[in-house]
């Protein structure tokens, strides 16, 4: 039968173009860079979670036991080592989505459209849609696998210091919050889609590098704005004479309670008389926040939102490509 159906059907029966290995080959430097970054950060996080956290905790134990009337000895180097390297790894995981967006815009789509190699692929038996799909899927896979392991390792390194190291970051510290959970992976994927879209829109490497990073900044900023509202927060209240200790968790809102139970912002006043007058309306205080038990709900809702944005950006990539190619 196949003999009779001619060359057109022969193409369909022989199988689909093998594109994946060429995407890996063409972007080998980026893949190696990612593997290198992964190895370094993973190694540091393993050290942070184990010996470095233990040494720093020991240092803090000695420091806290000091009574300062006698010479005091504690291992300051260990304390600073945990603190510095913890900050560097957190920083690396937080910057990653921006690097991914810039790379995707410049190298993944922008450069290929600028130099014409995208057209070469499209006239070599690969449909434009498939060309883009493979270019999005391969890095997405590498990023998801790598960041998933890294955020787990980061969470271990953070948990190792929690309650033992006085300067350990709170769970809701912005950098730590993202580096500790799946939002890192979701942000990296959003960066990939945003960068790819920038490259497809501008069709030039350098401007797409910038636009990719700008898109990512927009996504990051919006995420920060929305994050506290993605899960119902808890409100504590206190009578006027009581202290309400802010900082029990991720703050959403706080202010004065009126006698009818209404919420007012804390007044800005600069003299005692003005303050007395301003606070006269207060029957108490309130604090709306997320306790630590909201950590996973917030992580998962934020990640879901980011993945939805990623999906929309990917869809936009295909729409833009379809408008540009017949």
């Amino acid at each position: 039968m196949t003999v009779l159906t001619g060359p057109v059907d022969a193409v369909a029966t022989v199988g689909r173009p093998r594109m994946t290995r060429w995407v890996v080959r063409l972007h080998r430097p980026a893949l190696l860079a990612w593997a290198g970054l992964f190895a370094v950060v993973a190694g540091l996080l393993i050290a942070l979670a184990g010996p470095w956290a233990d040494a720093a905790a020991e240092g803090w134990r000695h420091y806290d036991a000091c009574d300062f009337n006698r010479p005091c000895s504690y291992d300051q180097t260990a304390i600073l080592r945990y603190k510095s390297w913890y900050n560097y790894t957190t920083y690396a995981l937080n910057v990653l989505p921006f690097l991914v967006a810039a790379w995707a815009g410049a190298a993944l789509t922008g450069r290929e459209l600028e130099s014409g190699t995208a057209r070469l692929a499209w006239t070599q038996g690969t449909s434009p849609a498939r060309w883009l799909a493979v270019r999005l899927a391969v890095p997405a896979l590498a990023l998801t696998a790598g960041t998933s392991l890294l955020f787990w390792l980061h969470h271990r390194a953070w948990a190792a210091g929690r309650g033992r190291i006085d300067t350990a970051k709170t769970w809701y510290d912005t950098g730590t919050f993202h580096a500790n959970g799946p939002t890192t992976a979701a942000l990296a994927l959003a960066g990939l889609a945003a960068g790819a879209l920038a490259g497809l829109l501008l069709r030039r490497a350098l401007p797409a590098l910038v636009l990719g990073a700008v898109f990512m900044s927009g996504i990051w900023g919006t995420t920060q704005q929305l994050l506290p509202h993605l899960w119902p927060a808890v409100t504590r209240t206190a009578a006027k004479q009581q202290q309400l200790d802010l900082g029990a968790g991720l703050g959403v809102d706080h202010g004065m309670l009126t006698s009818t139970g209404g919420h007012l912002p804390l007044p800005a006043c600069d003299s005692e008389a003005a303050c007395d007058a301003a606070y006269a309306k207060a029957a108490g205080f309130y604090d709306t926040y997320h306790p630590y038990s909201h950590y996973w709900p917030l992580q998962l809702t934020t990640s879901a939102l980011l993945l939805a944005v990623t999906g929309l950006l990917a869809l936009a990539c295909f729409r833009v490509l379809r408008r540009q190619v017949s």
Binding site: A10, V11, V14, P17, R18, W22, R25, A121, Q124, G125
Partner: peptide
Amino acid sequence: AETLRMGADLNPGR
């Protein structure tokens, strides 16, 4: 040589 191998991979059957 790689460029030609890529051509082979992208045009299976042809």
